[in-house]
Design a protein around this nucleic acid. Sequence first.
DNA 1: AAGTGTGAAAAGTTTCACAGCG
DNA 2: CGCTGTGAAACTTTTCACACTT
Lengths: 224, 224
Amino acid sequence: MAKNPFERVVAVEIPDPKAEKLDIPKKAIYRLSIYHRCLQKLLGNGVDMVSSTTLAKAAGVKPAQLRKDLAYFGQFGTRGLGYPVELLGNTIRETLGREHLQPVILVGAGNLGSALLRYPGFEKEGFEVVAAFDANPEVARVRVTTVPVMADGELERFVTEHPVKLAILCVPAEFAQSVANRLVAAGIQGVLNFSPIVLEVPPDVTVNNVDLALELEHLGYFIR
Amino acid sequence: MAKNPFERVVAVEIPDPKAEKLDIPKKAIYRLSIYHRCLQKLLGNGVDMVSSTTLAKAAGVKPAQLRKDLAYFGQFGTRGLGYPVELLGNTIRETLGREHLQPVILVGAGNLGSALLRYPGFEKEGFEVVAAFDANPEVARVRVTTVPVMADGELERFVTEHPVKLAILCVPAEFAQSVANRLVAAGIQGVLNFSPIVLEVPPDVTVNNVDLALELEHLGYFIR
DNA sequence: AAGTGTGAAAAGTTTCACAGCG
DNA sequence: CGCTGTGAAACTTTTCACACTT
């Protein structure tokens, strides 16, 4: 396994920048995104007040959990009435740092990467893939037309010159760690990693893994 | 049937007499797949004994957790020596129900679906996508050549006539629930769902959600 | 009457620390 | 001695139940 240049940094107890947020369960943050989605739908249907019971059912959680989750961030409901759909939606959007369109880059415009570039769900949730990078930009450009595809080597310059903090990483597993190192060095703060390996990054960088084969394997355990 | 979409495993909760599996933490089962992958790699390198410390580092967990995870299934190690790489790998493979190639179908061979059909990771982990289904099979066939693409309507017949228990669901959100209902009715027991909605299924069917936009949103919370 | 906000209990998961085996 | 296996402690997250507000 690749040797990690940042490994020893963790030893000292440094003031963690994400510390103020840390008493909120991580899973609650995931659920916040779901609540937001449900609220948008309700808003589209002209609903302007919703109870924890109704919203929880739409989100697939229990009412008490919904209330507790919202309580981590403040008090938004009116007793006897419920939550104001629009206001609550806005508050969640703000909490998730999604008031504005968030730029993202994608590295590795191969099979999966180019499909993700065409995936409409990212834009729908407020993200904009502003550039893609590939070792073979000419080849990749054939399948990707929506986003500029640049040579892998331009990655550092682009990240330094643009205000982008998030990257989607879809390169083959053997290159994932070294590309991740470069992304981090260039200033990327969050990586959505599709490679089936454990990425080593400094503690101030967040990695979120989507391991497709793993998810399928996991199902295998539960079927008879 | 209120269920939490973030429990990646929407698992069986009925009092099942022959369910010895149920006191194993769900997260441990995920980790089992990771351990398996690491063991395969070690095996390829000719290693035949590995300590919990070494394997845990490779898998990105703490040694004590690895030992506890393995202990849920039995005793595989030798004190003073470690774990036998090949034997442990085989045992995990069996536990995950992956001794044999597992057939899978994919429904919705659009943008994301067709990329997944070309994704090599599934086969590498012992799954075989045996057929794909789409509302527009002719259109889909243009981009999919590796797997037979059939008309959506043939789904039921195929599932009934073949021993397939797992399905990958990549249809647009508005059709996801109805397709899921048909899959369940036809006898599918596990669904890997890529639609950003909460699927309702009977308790003996397992759903595993991969919500791409959600994963990106989650990162958004942690960056400054 | 309806429905939130929340302390306290329960459930679930991880980590510790060390006894015990090869 | 080195390293597993594990009970108990620590920690995290969910669920309950009800006081309290509109």
